[in-house]
Nucleic acid binder design. Structure first.
Ligand SMILES: [Mn+2]
Ligand SMILES: [Mn+2]
Ligand SMILES: [Zn+2]
Ligand SMILES: [Zn+2]
Lengths: 122, 122
DNA sequence: ATATAAATAGTAATCATTACTACTTACAAA
DNA sequence: TTTGTAAGTAGTAATGATTACTATTTATAT
């Protein structure tokens, strides 16, 4: 993989925020540093960074958001403002029950908890 | 809400399969019964059926799939063939911990278990 | 029967994302 | 150091899922 300044900038943007941004937001931030960067470059590099394990992607409704926190973790999602909040909450499911009851080989659990973040408590 | 034959057909299609189909599949099925039904009609009625609690929607990657099973339940998702399988597996998370640790008011959990369904076991 | 607002078919538009293409650049070898 | 070359980029076109628009049809209340 050849060095690319654009990719470095994109990686730093994603890894220095906890906001789980989408491609458009990353693009806007990147433009502050590289005036003529292309949106296609942002999408391509986000995918490369994901495939090389530098960042993660989160499918949120019909958009993809990116996460610089590559530790195994799940999220709280605020239904009011869309915020995604990192948690260390663990998922514990009965692996044997899944295999026995559903003849299904489980590998990974994805979950998020919907609710309201502190911004919306009066 | 006025009666609509199109809506009845769409509802019956979604409610008589466990495949969690997307709009396109529902459209193709509906055309077998109503030759000139419009894709827009399918999308509009799927939304109406969802809003009136007759069906549920599931955001799967960047597509919406529909579910005639409106009981509270979660899914196993096969990473090989994309199948979604209903389960009665419960999600138990520590509500108090979420409120205390994250100042977040949890309301609902969405989770699915990724893995391989029986079709892919040799 | 008639009026009328809701629903439809058919089509255009939107939004997120991906594909294409001519140009640029990192970097390896001469 | 130049130079060759394939990887990467900018800019733009295309795609796929979904939504919006509009003229026409239809359910249903009077
Ligand atoms: Mn995160
Ligand atoms: Mn289901
Ligand atoms: Zn919030
Ligand atoms: Zn499968």
């Amino acid at each position: 993989m050849r060095y690319s300044y654009q990719r470095e900038v994109i990686k730093n943007i994603v890894c220095s925020t906890k906001s789980h941004p989408n491609a458009e937001w990353v693009f806007c931030e990147a433009k502050k540093q590289i005036e003529n960067i292309s949106l296609g470059t942002v999408y391509r590099n986000l995918k490369i960074l994901e495939n090389t394990g530098k960042i993660k992607s989160i499918h949120d409704d019909n958009q993809v958001r990116y996460d610089g926190n590559i530790d195994d973790h799940h999220h709280l999602k605020c239904v009011e403002c869309g915020a995604l909040i990192d948690t260390d909450i663990q998922s514990n499911f009965d692996r044997k029950k899944i295999i026995d009851d559903y003849d299904f080989e489980p590998n990974e659990v994805k979950f998020f908890i919907l609710g309201k973040c502190k911004k919306h408590t009066k």
